[in-house]
């Protein structure tokens, strides 16, 4: 079983995000990137599957940011092969472009299953996993919480609102958008990451990508949020009244 896990870097929300001079993108000069948390789950699920049925896990990531650290961390966790995709990609890189670049790179690789994180915080134009499946011409299921593979197919659980799930058979190869791995993503001890930096190699492939398929960004702006709380004052009676008003306004109580 050859499993490919595309890993993407997303802006780290721990930092204050600033908007650049054009107003159409984040100020990327100071931006800190980190692995999309759902991709971490996808990688974990892939490693669990490998442990169950054997095979290999290939981590694929587009060049840029701290991509090497990202790939080495994947190696430290157990990825067998690391692939960096190079190319002349548009900035900001939207989901369509990313999916096209990944499809271009993955086409040349051997794979039975592709696991992606179900979504990411910067997917303005849709989910990379689903787009990737269509560019590769293989089926996909999103919001997956459980995967088992046997006889050339995957049995997956897809979660809906309220916790009800649908069970599906999926003929492989396929793309699955992982919502949560069966267990918390494993820890990559830093010594292992450092060892990977010394011993693992990152293969490089090139790919092309057009950004076609996204809307045109007019501007970015920050949602209004006052500094700190708006204080509700008055007698307990008056305060209770105000709270209920707010709850009604937000549709929380009728």
């Amino acid at each position: 079983m050859h499993i490919i896990v595309p890993l993407r870097q997303v802006p780290d929300l721990v930092e204050d995000l600033e908007i650049d001079a054009s107003g159409k993108d984040l100020d990327r000069e100071w931006l800190k990137y980190k692995m999309n948390e759902f991709d971490d789950h996808a990688l974990e699920e892939a490693l669990l599957l490998k442990e169950e049925v054997g095979g290999a896990v290939t981590a694929v990531a587009l060049d840029g940011g701290e991509v090497d650290k990202l790939l080495f961390t994947a190696a430290a966790k157990g990825a067998d092969r690391l692939v960096k995709v190079r190319g002349d990609f548009p900035t900001p890189l939207n989901s369509h472009a990313m999916a096209r670049a990944l499809a271009g790179a993955i086409q040349g690789l051997d794979y039975d299953l592709i696991l992606t994180g179900v979504q990411a915080v910067d997917e303005l134009d849709g989910q990379v996993g689903v787009l990737l499946a269509h560019y590769l011409g293989i089926p996909h299921v999103s919001v997956v919480t459980d995967v088992q593979v046997h006889d050339g197919k995957a049995v997956v659980h897809k979660e809906y609102a309220g916790g009800v799930m649908g069970e599906f058979d999926v003929i492989l190869p396929a793309v699955l958008g992982i919502q949560a791995a069966r267990q918390t993503p494993r820890y990559a001890p830093v010594s292992r990451v450092r060892m990977a930096m010394r011993k693992s190699t990152i293969e490089e492939v090139s790919a092309e990508a057009s950004a076609e398929g996204a809307p045109d960004i007019r501007k970015l702006f920050k949602p209004e949020k006052g500094a700190g709380a708006q204080m509700l004052e008055g007698s307990p009676e008056a305060v209770a009244e105000k709270i209920i008003h707010i709850l009604k306004e937000k549709g929380i109580v009728q």
């Binding site: 918390t184 494993r186 820890y187 001890p189 830093v190 990451v193």
Partner: peptide, 23 residues
């Protein structure tokens, strides 16, 4: 250190390690 290598890390601690490495 051996335990961490073998994946026996209490989750609270794992988060701290990850935070430290990241930030």
């Amino acid at each position: 250190e051996e335990a961490v290598m073998e994946g026996h890390v209490p989750p609270e601690l794992q988060e701290v390690f990850e935070n430290t490495f990241e930030y």
